[in-house]
Amino acid sequence: MISLRINGESKDVDAPPDMPLLWVLRDILGLTGTKFGCGMALCGACTVHVDGAPVRSCLLSVGSIGQRAITTIEGIGATPAGAKIQKAWLDLEVVQCGYCQSGQIMSATALLNGTPHPEDSDIDAAMAGNICRCGTYVRIREAIKHAAQN
């Protein structure tokens, strides 16, 4: 049994310690908002927060997390920055298929937490690891700036 703190709740999961958090979230806990895209830290679809920092859950072994706080897309709306980003995403209608957007929103929220008024270079640095096959990048950039203003 491994005990985790996810979105403020503590959960005990029966999983091998080398199992990536992504699959623990999706397949054991049924938190399917966090997505699988590449499994190699190349696309960002699986991004969650660990103690507020964006982390690729597809490579993060669940045994290495300990009591650090995990936040997923299901919980990010409860944080001020997360709520802001989600609202901006809707105001600017960023989403297309939406599959990458959980990861985009987690990365963008972390950016806003660390850099309340990001410049383009900050957005590039924080978001370039998140692939969007539908090509919503233009709106992602606008939405982050929009969220930063409100």
């Binding site: 982390v55 490579l59 590039d124 690891g129």
Partner: peptide
């Protein structure tokens, strides 16, 4: 170099060089 790093590398190696995952 930084642009490529941001897209292809930072997800695993981080900006600190200390990988948060592996």
């Amino acid at each position: 170099g930084k642009a490529v790093y941001a897209g292809a590398c930072a997800g695993c190696h981080d900006w600190t060089g200390v990988s948060p995952v592996v």
